[in-house]
Amino acid sequence: MASKDLRKAGLKVTLPRMKILEMLENSENRHLSAEDVYKGLMESGDDIGLATVYRVLTQFESAGLVQRHHFEGGQSIFELDDGDHHDHLVCVRCGAIEEFFDKTIEDRQEKVAKDNGFKITDHSLIIYGLCPECRDAE
């Protein structure tokens, strides 16, 4: 994503928006809280306040640039919206998040919706459990 993507989404290109977008694009972790973005910006020497981070992430969500997830714990997690659907596995102990796509699950959800007269407009599947590291630590 670049400044043209911000303009295409109807957002003015500003330094805070570009820095936050870079943070989301370049992070090893695709799923970041506003606090994670803020800490990353502070570590890289960028002086952007936490309130600005929240405001920009909300603007990005409204513009369709990021998706907001509400996993267990109540904290909002953001990821760039690359247009590809995927579901999530979330570790209830350490908070690790893994993405996955399973055609069989997607097909089954379509069938359930159709059998009940629904047309799916959006959906999410979140599976909670223990990641391999946390399971091995038991």
Rank of each mutant, 00 (worst) to 15 (best):
L41G: 05
I120Q: 03
E25C: 08
I120M: 12
E110N: 11
L57V: 04
V92W: 00
A9V: 06
M18G: 00
K103V: 13
M23D: 08
K119L: 06
K114L: 10
L15G: 10
L24E: 03
N26L: 08
D82V: 06
I97M: 02
L41E: 07
A2K: 13
D46A: 14
C91S: 04
E28I: 08
H86R: 14
Y38I: 08
T14I: 05
I126E: 11
I127E: 03
A51D: 14
A34C: 03
G64T: 02
T104I: 11
A137N: 12
L15N: 12
R17K: 14
H85W: 10
E43V: 04
D47G: 00
D81A: 03
F101P: 03
G40R: 08
K12S: 09
G95S: 09
K19T: 13
A51G: 09
D5F: 00
R17L: 07
K119H: 06
D102T: 03
D107N: 13
A2H: 12
E133R: 14
D102F: 06
G73M: 12
H88Q: 10
A9C: 07
E61Y: 09
G10F: 09
L65K: 03
I127S: 04
Y128R: 15
I77S: 01
S44F: 07
S124H: 15
E110P: 01
F118E: 11
F60N: 00
C134I: 03
C134M: 07
K119C: 01
C134F: 06
Q59T: 07
E25P: 00
R55W: 07
D136H: 04
S62K: 15
E110D: 12
N29F: 04
V90C: 06
T104G: 00
D5L: 01
R93P: 00
E138V: 07
E106A: 09
H31T: 03
A63C: 07
H88S: 01
Q75K: 15
L24V: 03
P16Y: 07
E99H: 12
A2G: 14
L6V: 06
C91F: 04
K19S: 12
H69V: 02
G73E: 11
G40L: 07
D136R: 14
I126F: 08
K103C: 01
T14P: 00
A137Q: 13
K8N: 11
Y38K: 02
Q109R: 15
D82W: 06
R135S: 08
L89K: 05
S44E: 14
Q75M: 12
A63W: 09
I48K: 03
R108W: 09
V90K: 02
N116H: 14
L65H: 04
R30T: 01
D87S: 14
G45H: 08
E79A: 05
R7L: 13
L15F: 14
G129L: 06
D81F: 06
R7N: 08
D107A: 09
D107F: 09
K114C: 02
K12D: 13
H69K: 11
V56Q: 00
